[in-house]
């Protein structure tokens, strides 16, 4: 197997390699690297390790809005025009107590505020201040049923019709879901979250890259597997070839 990989790699170097890159078996082999990276990174850093938090002076003067910055969706625009008073966060799937929560409901719950660094898969970083409800608190209230393994976030936006017609979605495992810094943020830099940055609610998963941190969240679903959702890879960008584990 090693030898085959090396030969393929060598062939790639000589022939311009695009065919090798797109070979299904090569893709499968490379996908195993992600499993090794995830396993080892979790092992050496531990489940409770906290992402660095920064002083207020380090907050980026201009936090880049990436991906969708204004969802082209009539239902969403209606909600936005009324300051999300009619928006409800739908919590369902493998939970004992499904719920629909308003923004006021979420603001009335215990919150966490953190100044953290946002690392985009493209390579840039910004620092912002986030306030929101720990996802773990919501999941404890909803009570996960037996078999719940992933938390899926369904969003209001379609990112790029030319790439994919599905709406944005993301998923994380339970270790990240119950991590203290994993929050559903409704405030950014002491202001209500702007449409540009995912109003009314966006996910913060501070030990992973930006594409995991879904914006415009409409529905949260606890599932045993994400194979049946979207393209089956656990997220919008994952369906387009990106790694599900975005810890690096």
């Amino acid at each position: 197997m090693k030898r085959r990989q090396l030969l393929l790699a060598g062939a790639g170097l000589l022939s311009g390699c695009d065919k090798v890159v797109q070979d299904p078996q090569v893709r499968t082999t490379l996908a195993h690297t992600e499993d090794i990276t995830r396993t080892v990174q979790r092992l050496v850093t531990g489940p409770a390790s906290l992402a660095p938090e920064y002083p207020a002076a380090d907050i980026s003067p201009a936090f880049k809005g990436n991906g969708t910055v204004d969802p082209d969706d009539d239902d969403y625009q209606d909600l936005a025009s009324n300051h999300f008073k009619d928006w409800r966060l739908d919590i369902g799937g493998l939970v004992e107590h499904p719920a629909k929560l308003s923004l006021d409901d979420l603001r009335a719950m215990p919150s966490r505020t953190q100044i953290t660094r946002h690392d985009c898969v493209e390579g840039w970083s910004c620092i912002g201040k986030w306030k929101g409800v720990p996802l773990g608190t919501l999941l404890q209230q909803a009570v996960l049923r037996q078999g719940a393994t992933y938390i899926v976030f369904h969003c209001a936006d379609r990112l790029d019709e030319s790439l994919s017609s599905e709406k944005y979605y993301e998923s994380i495992g339970l270790e990240d879901a119950f991590h203290p810094q994993t929050i559903l943020a409704y405030d950014m830099n002491d202001q209500p979250l702007s449409v540009r940055h995912g109003a009314p609610l966006r996910l913060r998963v501070e030990r992973q890259l930006g594409y995991k941190m879904a914006k415009y969240i409409m529905r949260i679903e606890a599932v045993s597997s994400f194979r049946h959702i979207g393209g089956g890879k656990g997220g919008y960008w994952e369906d387009l070839g990106y790694a599900w584990y975005a810890g690096i």
Partner: peptide, 20 residues
């Protein structure tokens, strides 16, 4: 570049495989 066409996703997969 690897690949020759633009793909951050594929570039990352190759980078991390050979990094290991």
């Amino acid at each position: 570049t690897i690949p020759r066409y633009y793909s951050l996703a594929d570039g990352r997969h190759w980078h991390f495989f050979f990094a290991w």
